[in-house]
Design a protein around this nucleic acid. Structure first.
Length: 424
RNA sequence: GUGGGCGUGGCCUAGUGGUUAAGGCGCCAGGUUGUGGCCCUGGAGAUCGAGGGUUCAAAUCCCUCCGCUCACCCCA
């Protein structure tokens, strides 16, 4: 038997409600903030991600789905959403649009990882990007948008962590300082961290091994090494966030797994959750990315949230979107003649904008009504030989358990009145 | 990639060496000749994850593989 590939899931109808709710909330919030939707291809030239995410990162090193297409081109299923959008920004000359360009996406993301709770090989991300302005107020706007999303979804158990990791100008000096600090404790570092010491020093900070933790405790803070521009920027971000009433905590150990981040980085986590796949969303500024891809120097900032993780968290909190009300009409019939009329009637009702589930086969009326009940139909329209002959329909109110004859020509009007807002 | 836990009808679970693998939910049907939800009755549905081994006898013990899951790593 075939099964969904490892690390992937089918999102069944019963679960769709939650996903639609999250996505719908995100979309309407974006509308409120002036962000417009963009969709990019599921796969891109493999080089795009190596170039932007960084060749030394885990994502690129061992987590991409890369394949050769029939012409021998190396393609990669997108492992994140930002680089493709930057590619599109450049490709379509979006620097000619009013800046900053505000975009959002809801897309499948692919990473070849060992699956576990809240971590999949294919997952859905919602993300927003504001490209073309370096003002710290824009960082605050983006963070505000992310925070408001969680708030709108009823998630009140979250913490927002903030840090600045500097820019091209000031980060090298900080990295040197960091290396110097860690080198002194080389003996007690784990094997991974010894490798990071040369390959990716910034990541030393978020190692969770106890022996490395103690070194990290006393490690220098990136915010103490910011150049004047970065320091002013970070100050601006914190000021504006406070202004917006967003409760953030500065976390000097917060770094991110993608190389393109500069200055601001942030992450949203449920309170109390430590380690694990706790991050519900995160992002930051990436002022060098567009230029790296061949565009003109363009500052930008954005974030992404994992929809599965949000859904998981909502379930844990007992936050449940309103179930869709039973709004359908179930059309039942008895006999072949009535069946033909039932099909005609169902089509007519749908054309009138009324959702219909129709019976099939030659089941007893009892079985048909049982099904009407099971599908949550508000009404059952019953057609027998008598009804067909006299041109009426027995309209049964399933909740009240009462029914009355209605001329079949009036059915759409009667139902539309009864169902009110449920017209499609 | 590393380590732990677990694989019994669609779902949940009982059964830990011995006759036709048990129950609940769900599904289907019957209990009125044209009427649902509750109740009663019946039915369908399982090569007990796969392969191999031990044994007179394996869902049950052993090995291998596969899958799921949790944690590490990393990230959303």
């Amino acid at each position: 038997m075939y099964k969904a590939p490892r690390g992937t899931v089918d999102i069944l109808p019963a679960e769709q409600r939650r996903f639609r709710y999250v996505e719908g909330t995100a979309a309407s919030l974006c509308q409120l903030y002036g962000y417009e939707r963009i969709d990019t291809p599921v796969f891109e030239d493999a080089g795009l991600f190596v170039r932007t995410i960084g060749s030394g990162t885990d994502i690129v090193e061992k987590e991409t789905y890369t394949f050769e297409d029939r012409s021998g081109q190396a393609m990669t299923l997108r492992p994140e959403g930002t680089a493709p959008i930057c590619r599109a920004y450049i490709e379509h000359g979006m620097h000619n649009l009013p800046q900053p360009v505000r975009l959002y996406y809801i897309a499948s993301i692919f990473r070849y990882e060992r699956p576990q709770r809240g971590r999949y090989r294919q997952h859905q991300q919602f993300g927003a990007e504001a490209i073309g302005d370096g003002d710290p107020a824009l960082d605050a706007e983006v963070i505000d948008l992310a925070w408001r999303l969680f708030d709108s979804l009823g998630m009140r158990n979250l913490s927002l962590f903030l840090n600045s990791i500097g820019c091209r100008a000031c980060r090298p000096a900080y990295l040197e300082e960091l290396k110097r600090h860690y080198s002194a404790y080389r003996e007690q570092l784990c094997a991974d961290c010894r490798a990071r010491l040369v390959k990716n020093p910034l990541r030393l900070l978020d190692c969770k091994k106890p022996s490395c933790q103690s070194v990290a405790q006393s490690a220098p803070h990136s915010t103490d090494y910011l150049c004047s521009e970065c320091a002013a920027h970070f100050g601006g971000v914190t000021t504006y966030l406070s202004l917006l009433g967003i409760p953030f905590q500065t976390n000097h150990r917060l770094v991110r797994g993608l190389d393109y981040y500069t200055k601001t980085v942030f992450e949203v986590q449920p309170e109390g959750e430590q380690g694990a796949q706790s991050a519900l969303g995160g992002g930051g500024r990436y002022d060098g990315l567009i230029e790296e891809l061949g565009g003109r120097p363009t500052p930008a900032v954005g974030f992404a949230v994992g929809i599965e993780r949000v859904v998981l968290n909502m379930k844990q909190l007992g936050v449940d979107p309103q179930a869709a009300s039973g709004c359908r009409v179930f059309v039942a019939y008895l006999g072949d003649e009535a069946k033909a009329e039932a099909m005609r009637l169902a089509a007519e009702l749908r054309q009138g904008g009324i959702a219909v589930v129709s019976s099939f086969g030659d089941r007893s009326l009892k079985a048909q009504l049982r099904q009407a009940n099971a599908v949550g139909a508000a009404h059952a329209a019953i057609l027998g030989e008598d009804e067909v002959r006299t041109g009426i329909v027995m309209l049964r109110d399933m909740a009240k358990g009462r029914q009355e004859p209605v001329p079949s020509g009036d059915l759409v009007r009667v139902l539309a009145a009864t169902l009110g807002g449920f017209k499609a």
